[in-house]
């Protein structure tokens, strides 16, 4: 029963994401495509964050930092190319197949350094420290006046994809959806693999895992880096969507919103975080369209979810059990 309903929901989600470009001309054109692209990109971030929160019991409150770093890598590479200023001998690049992996690499490296420190602690320390280091990265970019500081950094155009210009919104949507599909596939294999079992074993009972000979730290660090890389990819896509990267992409507020998406959709479920991203953006867009002071309503909404629906939409649909 439960399984059927959640499978149905997953199929509905996939069908809806595929249907968007075909339905868009009738229901709002490029606006809808852009919104759907945001859902897909935030879906990638939420999925990656769930690898930490849902699968590893690591409440990371600084995930926006890796998202923002990914965005900045793309924008900076494009800035150097456009302005003809080499960066340490590199001319910069506008090729997605170069700069997107580079974005993942940089975000992954940052996650490696931050994770290595944060994972020495646990529980509430971990929450506060991931937040603090994300804030540190945020301030570095605020202070980097060369790259626009507070005002952010614009891109003249979207990246080229294998040499082709991505001019139309639908094409870009398909690329983002492809990235999401890839991330979903990777995450799915990760969590059923031996590695994933150790992660979830560590989340379920750390003492037992240690008594069985697992040094859980190394596994968690790898998960932290993988999640950072996925967030970096999403950031690269987001900078392309807006042709713009700014410190706002790294703000603690966004980190909090990513967490809300994960919980809202359902922790430790593959499709939950993506549904969470969709619901979040839908609620946010409709509330902020209705009133300038939408946070007055959105805050209590988040609060109610935390108190009464900790398993999120996915949990409600699946029903029963824990």
């Amino acid at each position: 029963m439960g399984l059927n309903r959640s499978t149905l929901l997953a199929f509905l989600l996939i069908a809806a994401l595929i249907a968007v470009p075909f339905a868009a001309p009738y229901i709002g054109g490029n606006y809808i495509i852009t919104q759907a692209t945001r859902v897909v990109i935030f879906g990638i971030v939420a999925l990656s964050l769930d690898l930490l929160i849902g699968r590893s019991n690591l409440v990371s409150f600084g995930h926006a930092a890796y998202f923002g770093l990914g965005g900045y890598v793309v924008a900076i590479a494009s800035f150097h190319l456009a302005n003809d200023i080499p960066l340490l001998g590199w001319a910069g690049s506008n090729e997605a197949l170069v700069v997107w992996p580079l974005a993942m690499l940089v975000s992954g490296l940052a996650a490696l350094v931050v994770g290595a420190l944060c994972l020495r602690t646990s529980g509430v320390y971990f929450i506060m420290i991931t937040l603090a280091f994300a804030q540190m990265i945020y301030f570095i970019f605020v202070a980097l006046k060369f790259y626009g500081g507070d005002d952010g950094l614009s891109m003249r155009s979207r990246n080229l994809f294998a040499g082709e210009r991505i001019t139309n919104a639908t094409t870009f949507y398909w690329i983002c959806l492809g990235a999401l599909a890839l991330c979903l596939l990777v995450q799915w294999r990760l969590i059923v693999s031996r590695f994933g079992r150790v992660l979830s074993g560590g989340a379920a009972n750390e003492r037992r895992m240690a008594a069985m000979g697992y040094s859980i730290y190394a596994y968690r660090l790898v998960a932290f880096v993988i999640a950072g890389m996925m967030a970096g990819l999403a950031g690269a896509l987001y900078a392309n969507l807006n042709r713009f990267a700014s410190p706002d992409m790294m703000s603690w507020l966004l980190s909090g919103e990513f967490m809300v998406m994960v919980i809202m959709g359902g922790v430790a479920s593959l499709f939950g975080p993506i549904i969470g991203a969709a619901v979040f953006l839908l609620v946010e867009t409709s509330l902020s369209g209705a009133t300038e002071h939408w946070q007055i309503f959105f805050g209590p909404f988040v609060l109610l979810i935390a108190l009464y629906a900790p398993r999120g939409v996915w949990g409600l649909v699946r029903g029963g059990g824990k």
């Binding site: 929160i53 409440v59 409150f61 529980g123 509430v124 929450i127 909090g256 967490m259 809300v260 919980i263 922790v267 988040v302 609060l303 979810i305 935390a306 108190l307 900790p310």
Partner: peptide, 8 residues
């Protein structure tokens, strides 16, 4: 848990 506290 801390997650619910953070979110709320």
């Amino acid at each position: 848990d801390h997650l619910a506290q953070v979110l709320a």
